[in-house]
Design a protein around this nucleic acid. Sequence first.
DNA 1: ACCTGAACACCGTTCAAGT
DNA 2: ACCTGAACACCGTTCAAGT
Lengths: 188, 188
Amino acid sequence: MASTRLTLAALTSAAIGVVERSGFDALTLTAVADELGVATSTLYTHIGGLDGLKHLVAEAATRNLTGELRNSAIGISGPDALLAMAVAYREFALDHPGQFASTLLPPRVGNGDLADANAELLRVFVLVYRAAGLDEAESELAARAMRSAIHGFLAIEHSTASRAEHDAEYRYLLGALQRGLLLQRDDG
Amino acid sequence: MASTRLTLAALTSAAIGVVERSGFDALTLTAVADELGVATSTLYTHIGGLDGLKHLVAEAATRNLTGELRNSAIGISGPDALLAMAVAYREFALDHPGQFASTLLPPRVGNGDLADANAELLRVFVLVYRAAGLDEAESELAARAMRSAIHGFLAIEHSTASRAEHDAEYRYLLGALQRGLLLQRDDG
DNA sequence: ACCTGAACACCGTTCAAGT
DNA sequence: ACCTGAACACCGTTCAAGT
């Protein structure tokens, strides 16, 4: 019934569409196959079942988020870039809750593509701390710390979804951790 | 077939048992009913389907975690109590991955019991910052910040599960944030 | 190599009927 | 009020058969 051959890109696009429209919980093989106009079993030619579909979405969502972070930091110098990125991270989580939820699930081992996407995301944070004067090793530690904190805050906020109330709390966390990270190198 | 009437406590205990043994993904109504020796439909008399079962486990796991945090901080003064609690939090996540995973899922609105359990967990952190000299409002901000950071770090670690490698990163995050939080009040 | 449709297993949910 | 068993819907997965 499909006019053209099914590609991985089309499959990914359809899956992201389902998640954007109906949330991550609605991501099923049936829903994606229906959207593409193919039989459910067709998907097995391209991906490893439901688990593979979830990883495909998680990888695409992670790359989308990374793109937003890069865009947000363009032309902003030093420590302000971190704040801009943190704001962009949060906006992604609030504007695309389905995609954000897909990045929260623990990835199974042996998924190189998803691991790559996560490494790229972390790299953006590392570059901020490099620009702030930290060396490579310390920048990696700082990047992981900041990303963990942002991730945790947004994961908890993800359930309540009352945005304005948490603005002050988010700024408080970012300010305190940023200050602590930049002090750490003086007597680490 | 059941010798006694089914209680909510017995249902919770069986559900925690399934999660401890087979992980959070294995938590199904069928598995819990089999463990209890009742029909699956019996569970609907006590809980609101699969979603209710997951919330029941999340609440029990949160209370278990809160208990561990309280125990870890007994007899430890001031800032050291925070470190002891952070270590206990991590040990709970690593020793009980199934229970920990249950606390990661976004709670639906209107679950008063789970919200209560989360408030109690947060309260333990608030008390640490009160003891460190912060006032109530600032202690609540600090508690949320620290809990978010710990939660995020452990959620990310939850997937990789190579404990020793992340020890230094965890201490780095805790040290930096703790330092930043205690400085914040001087010029907030 | 890719796609289909039928078949199967498993699970969540509802409900009339029993005690 | 609690429990059962049957029934139903939905979904993931496999596979022989088509192109």
